[in-house]
Design a protein around this nucleic acid. Sequence first.
DNA 1: ACTTTTTACTTAAACGATTAAGTAAATATT
DNA 2: AATATTTACTTAATCGTTTAAGTAAAAAGT
Lengths: 337, 337
Amino acid sequence: MSTVTIKLLAEKLQLSTATISKALCDSHEISDSTKKRVLALAEELNYVPNAYAGSLRRNKSKTIAVVIPEVADSFFSLALNGIEEAVLEKGYHALIYLTHEKLDREKAILKELTNGRVDGAIMSVTVETSDADHIREFNKKLPVVFFDRVCNDLDTAKVTTNDFECGYNATKHLIEAGCSKIILLSISNNLSIISERARGFTKAIADHNLNEADCRIIECTEDASCNYELIKEMMLPDNRPDGIIATVEKLTTDIYLACQQLDINIPQQVKVVCFSNQATAIILSPSLTTITQPAFEMGKSAATILLKSLRNNGLIMKEESIVIPSSLIIRNSTINN
Amino acid sequence: MSTVTIKLLAEKLQLSTATISKALCDSHEISDSTKKRVLALAEELNYVPNAYAGSLRRNKSKTIAVVIPEVADSFFSLALNGIEEAVLEKGYHALIYLTHEKLDREKAILKELTNGRVDGAIMSVTVETSDADHIREFNKKLPVVFFDRVCNDLDTAKVTTNDFECGYNATKHLIEAGCSKIILLSISNNLSIISERARGFTKAIADHNLNEADCRIIECTEDASCNYELIKEMMLPDNRPDGIIATVEKLTTDIYLACQQLDINIPQQVKVVCFSNQATAIILSPSLTTITQPAFEMGKSAATILLKSLRNNGLIMKEESIVIPSSLIIRNSTINN
DNA sequence: ACTTTTTACTTAAACGATTAAGTAAATATT
DNA sequence: AATATTTACTTAATCGTTTAAGTAAAAAGT
């Protein structure tokens, strides 16, 4: 019942460990008959090479790290599925680390990972990540690919979606549906994705000559109950918006609940569009207009880029960066009457 | 810029590697002054111990595997968060593997993992997993903790929720709300959780003297569009149910859509309860009665049990098994009038 | 003052693989 | 037939740690 190693195989076959090792990777130095004997015994004894012995010797772990804020919303869930698919295809392994939006966690994780445990990382930064020193330090040793929430002052491949355009189009869509007092619910202006969406929002407001004072950007917090109160307050009659854009999925519930509570009709009194990948968008009442991100593809692309670079020299071409467009799916929450 | 190893520290301080190693783990064999010098240099040079060298030597990887079907629905997402929390707390690492409900994948994953890569596994089996030989084989070498979808013929710790009761209570709730033709939407009777829920369903039907011919169990498939058609067909006027219990979250959308399409009113014509952890249940129209599982806690408990066993001898007490109850949250989809 | 114990190290083997370098026998070349 | 090359191995070093066993000097015990 002891573990089956190359050494054991060697003993049983009266060969050296070198021969076994070479036979197993089909080296030309080994005769066909020996290869067959080795393979047969390996099969019989259920030999599985020790993962770490090889990693240590070759300084390659065949493992990548996925460092993301949470896996709670559907974006990261779907992205993780995409990552796993790419990783599986190439025989790699994926370690998962959640930062819970804490910069300190992100730093600690990256520092520990420079010890050979992984060959590279895919990450989406926390809301707190404003400077990129810790990532740059990591990146001196190992390749990094960003997806979705990127760090722009780091020169590496990034997989993003067209956040600026989406911010613009969502706003334009609301304006065309008749909105003139539009609010963008943000969560952090640190975040690349949010600031891009906000830029698109602002530009659309300007391009369409809306009163800029009526179109504000409101920062929400990490605390769901706070957000609910914030949104309710925002919806008080005196300066109520007629359009809302939520930059993150989880605000959907707060918005719908607040409107229910205050007896405000969507879409008649306020139109709503959310950046969201929720499957339930279609069965909400009214069904929710969303900007749906290509989450799965983004995860898969990021992993593919990283793995490709690992096949070469571990150098990542910034030019590998890719923008995969999201789609505005118009449903009843923004349709007139 | 070369990697900082114990050997390098040893050279710089004119000490042996053994001394460095011992100093770093605060061994009593090393003087305080030496320890200080070592720690200081290690800090200065940003020494991080090579993960695999240690793993190889001690035959411990400080890594566990999470083997689950998908990470698409909110149950597994939340569970993964719980697992990550426990793993983080103990300084472990988590590798994630998705089986995509394929038994072959599950087998291949488990086989590869017997090579020292992980110290144990947490798993929730696929719908195809009817016999447990491959898991038993794995379990001969390494500890396994099941959560949610368990294998009952394996003698190890299991973290489950009270599926039987929940099946019973959901059914009872529908009966008390006036339903008499209740349908349970299943996905596979292989699955421990589903068969338990179905047992509860059947018992409640019997206990309340409902006509058993009117209360069927219908198997859905992996294919979402099929399920939609299936549900639509089921809702045709001739033998339409007045109550539906969905054993998995993803069926929610199909049910609501089918009812919208066929202009069937929930809850007046049909009452619906779903096993679901979706945050949006509350804003559906009507809001959805759910059996909400303690997903986060289940994941965390499973990880905690595994890690605890690893601290000891890697032996898992079946007695560590724990059942964490779900809650029936009654909302408008099952309320009369 | 002598032995014993403790302190603070070092030496060297080990974990399980890979691989450069060496070697003896078989085969090919001239 | 003598030399060169190829084949099919083996030996031994290596990756970066940990740890059992060894050791010399200092401290303690008698």
